[in-house]
Design a protein around this nucleic acid. Structure first.
Length: 563
RNA sequence: GCUUCCUUAGUUAAAUGGAUAUAACAAGCCCCUCCUAAGGGCUAGUUGUGGGUUCGAUUCCCGCAGGGAGUACCA
């Protein structure tokens, strides 16, 4: 139920629309003040009286009822307290109804709308390092969040499978590579070849690489077989990682897919008079918009990454007719996307405004930027396996008798890696350290999972106790706080989607877990004072457990029953 | 140079323009005959700088300082 709207409706202030009034209603910093508050300062202008006076008048004229139990005027604020039992009943009713459908916090607001999300977008022949984690888990989380809100979601892995680097790779393989070694070493063996090529490359070798790339393009059999082999090795490698991180895609169309669509794009740009020649290249002039030119074709006639992105955008609109198209790409590429979206706008595409660059911060190491060539790199699979190992060793120590420890360690360890990447605002840069990544205390997924395990253990003991059925109880502070935080979940999911900020959900998880743990410590659940209280507390415990599980699930994190 | 993002306890970070700026980690102390101590409690400690808008600014605007990123044929 929308308490704000309810209060706005009851207040009914002249000269102010209900909606406006509703949006003015805030939550006080301290519960002891109230559950909702109307700051009366803005009203002072409309009503020509002091805020304090307005608050007092409104308080005097407000009829409390079964929903709002008290109203007080304090320093220009009108503070409302909700009836706790009524809140409890409302929450339980809404929660149960939602769980019977698609889950508490889910919605049909996205029905009939498609959202394309371009994320992770791996490069062929390059292993995953810690820098690829953000786009992968952010995109994966947005994919699930939008799905939960009823959108039709298309997850796109825009493969980096086109460019002269693949000529280099073939050249390197033919020079030094052995099939058995590559089969055995997989993507890292391929990467080593590529790194070696770059460090030893001569003019002659560069020319050879260009020739191999030309051979790939012209359909040469051997070159294409090698390239396909590298591609399939890469895909089977990344799929293993995606499985562990619970990431999925609906499309793996990469850059190479768009090559034959480029002439048509170039033609359209020409027809619209957007294409000009500059220093031998074909460009769209963006000078009037304060940006460097958007290069469509190089002076040698070849396309660029930007051109393929343009073709991809047009293709996606045509194929999916999206309401929104998200690009989960680091802020390094801010300019690129500003240019891309501007060009689409200049082409007369009204949907250019539906394109969103979901920019996130960069990862560096404690001693500076990562560099694959210098070997200064942290591989993602190493981080994941170390995290799992740590979880396993803690588990072995704390709970040696527990069955299925391996799976639990996997969920805990992988969860910590994902959660670490999603907990802060996405725009923040990250300096990677194993100490921080492998921290399982405090504001972490492990804390949230642990809270769920506690709840599960209580619920196991109460499996024969019926749920609360609205019997009259007077909820204490802890129970009340818990209901409040749980009720905030649906809005949190929506806000996270709107801001493309899964961290909001991650933070909600920690908030809710903190509130639950205080409740757990202060209130006996199994041995509650009365039968009614026991049922109520069981109900709250179950709602917490289910919602936390749901929330972590949206982030791609599993929750073990025990740990 | 230009464009753009960032700057909050020792550290990492929260905070639709609202009341006493909130957590965690690290530090110090306390709590397991009691539903999982990967937990709970207590103590101490913060908005870079100068202006402006506003009844009210961590939040919006303009300087300054410091840092990141980008800035024509890489992706």
């Amino acid at each position: 139920m929308d308490y704000r709207a309810y209060i706005a409706e009851k207040l009914n202030i002249e000269g102010l629309a209900r909606e406006e009034l509703r949006d003015l209603i805030a939550v006080p910093p301290d519960t002891s003040l109230g559950d909702y508050a109307l700051p009366c300062f803005k009203l002072a202008k409309i009503l020509h009286r002091s805020p304090a006076l307005i608050a007092e008048e409104l308080a005097a004229g407000f009829q409390t009822d079964a929903v709002i139990s008290s109203v007080t005027a304090v320093n220009g604020y009108l503070n409302f307290k909700v009836d706790r039992l009524q809140l409890l009943e409302t929450f339980c009713k809404e929660f149960t109804a939602a769980e019977e459908k698609c889950g508490y916090g889910s919605s049909d607001m996205g029905a009939g709308k498609t959202v394309c999300i371009d994320y992770s977008s791996v490069n062929i022949a390059k292993p995953f390092h810690i820098g690829h984690l953000s786009t992968t888990v952010l995109g994966g989380a947005l994919y699930r969040i939008y799905g939960y809100l009823g959108y039709n979601v298309v997850g796109i892995n825009h493969l980096g499978d086109y460019g002269t680097q693949f000529g280099k790779l073939i050249s390197a393989y033919k020079r030094w590579g052995k099939m058995e070694e590559v089969e055995k070493g997989g993507i890292h063996a391929i990467n080593d070849l590529y790194v070696r090529f770059n460090s030893e490359a001569t003019e002659e070798m560069e020319a050879e690489a260009r020739e191999y790339f030309r051979l790939i393009e012209s359909g040469d059999r051997e070159a294409n077989e090698l390239f396909s082999w590298f591609k399939s090795l890469t895909l089977s490698y990344v799929e293993k990682i995606y499985d562990r991180l619970h990431i999925k895609f609906d499309s793996y169309l990469g850059e190479s897919f768009y090559i034959d669509k480029i002439p048509a794009v170039v033609e359209t740009l020409r027809e619209k008079g957007l294409l000009v020649e500059s220093q031998g290249a074909q460009v769209v002039d963006l000078e009037p918009f304060g940006m460097p030119p958007f290069i469509v074709l190089r002076s040698d006639g070849a396309s660029l990454y930007a051109t393929r992105d343009l073709a991809a955008a047009l293709y996606r609109k045509q194929t999916y007719d999206f309401a929104k198209c998200l690009y989960v790409v680091a802020y390094q590429q801010n300019l690129h996307f500003m240019q891309l979206f501007k060009v689409l706008e200049l082409m007369g595409m009204p949907w250019a405004r539906d394109m969103v660059h979901v920019a996130y911060g960069m990862v560096s190491l404690e001693d500076g930027a990562m560099s694959t060539r210098k070997g200064k790199v942290v591989w993602l699979e190493d981080v994941i396996s170390r995290s799992i190992e740590k979880a396993a060793s803690i588990l072995a120590e704390k709970n040696p008798a527990l069955a299925g420890r391996e799976d639990i360690a996997e969920e805990v360890g992988v969860g910590a890696v994902i959660f670490g990447a999603l907990y802060n605002n996405k725009i923040k840069d990250i300096v990677f350290s194993y100490d921080k990544a492998l921290n399982f205390d405090g504001e972490t997924s492990v804390y949230v999972q642990y809270t769920c395990a506690r709840a599960a253990s209580v619920l196991e003991r109460l499996k024969d106790t019926p749920l609360w059925n609205g019997e009259a109880v007077s909820p204490n502070e802890r129970e009340f706080e818990l209901v409040k935080v749980l009720s905030a979940f649906p809005d949190t999911v929506r806000a996270a989607a709107e801001a493309y900020e899964p961290s909001m959900i991650a933070r909600w998880c920690v908030d809710a877990a903190q509130v639950f743990n205080k409740f757990y410590i202060d209130c006996r659940i199994v041995n509650a004072e009365t039968e009614e209280l026991r049922r109520l507390r069981k109900t709250l415990t179950e709602a917490t457990s289910r919602t936390l599980r749901r929330a972590l699930g949206l982030l791609g994190i599993g929750v073990p029953e025990k740990m």
